[in-house]
Simulated assay, not measured.
Amino acid sequence: MLPVAGVNAESIHAVGIKKLEVVDPIDHQPMETVVFFPISGRAEVTNIGPYQIAASKSVAIERGFYPLILLSHGNMGSMWGHHDLATTLARQGYIVVSLTHPGDNFQNSSKMGTTSVLYGRPLQVSAALSAALKDSVLAPHIDKDRIGFVGFSAGGTTGLILAGAKPTLARLVEYCAKRPTTAMSAKPRDIFG
């Protein structure tokens, strides 16, 4: 891991969490987003649904500047699905923003596989980044020169698009037509070339 500028790693003992107000740029509705961040307080566990999150609510972020990582789940996931990774990164001195992609999550998969989700996910990640950079609690602690991304499955595709990749959907259609029983096994190389 890269050293974190302006942070004494020994002072980070635990993780805090807070909701972040983000509007989905596709549907113009609130988008569930949570932020994990370093704190100097005691480590606690917060129960959220079926998850035991190693983070505390209603705590102050530890003084310093931290790199920011945006986290995108795969199809039918949620902002909590990779909480172990997010809390581990926060304990290492990162701010982590994790969102639930509307229409492609465990509660609502109505838009999964659609073009609006394929291209909407990067816009949603960008909206979450913009919200974090404007948030009065987070913004003073974000190292704006060190912003990264982690994505899993469909979240990986999201990252490729954010990095400039351009999907060729005709390749996916061709791939699936040749393999009708394995259509869900398409890999990014099958779509992006």
Results as ranks from 00 to 15, higher is better:
Asn75Gln: 04
Leu89Trp: 08
Trp80His: 13
Leu89Gln: 15
Arg91Thr: 13
His83Phe: 10
Ser72Arg: 14
Ile61Val: 09
Tyr66Ile: 02
Tyr66Leu: 01
Pro67Thr: 00
Asp84Gly: 14
His73Arg: 00
His83Gly: 14
Ala86Asp: 11
Glu62Pro: 14
His82Asp: 13
Leu85Phe: 12
Arg63Cys: 13
Gly77Ser: 00
His82Ser: 15
Gly74Met: 05
Ile61Gln: 03
His83Met: 09
His83Ala: 14
Gly64Leu: 04
Ser72Tyr: 08
Ile61Cys: 04
Thr87Tyr: 04
Leu89Arg: 11
Asn75Arg: 02
Ala90Met: 02
Leu85Gln: 03
Glu62Trp: 05
Ala90Ser: 15
Ile69Arg: 03
Pro67Val: 00
Asp84His: 03
Leu68Arg: 03
Arg63Met: 12
Leu71Gly: 02
Thr88Lys: 15
Gly64Cys: 11
Gly81Trp: 03
Tyr66Lys: 02
Trp80Tyr: 15
Met76Thr: 08
Leu70Glu: 11
Ser78Tyr: 12
Glu62Tyr: 05
Arg91Tyr: 07
Ser72Trp: 10
Gly64His: 05
Leu68Ala: 01
Tyr66Asp: 03
Gly64Ala: 09
Trp80Ile: 09
His83Ile: 15
Leu85Pro: 06
Ile69Pro: 15
Ser72Ile: 04
Asp84Ser: 12
His83Pro: 15
Ile69Met: 09
Ser72Gly: 13
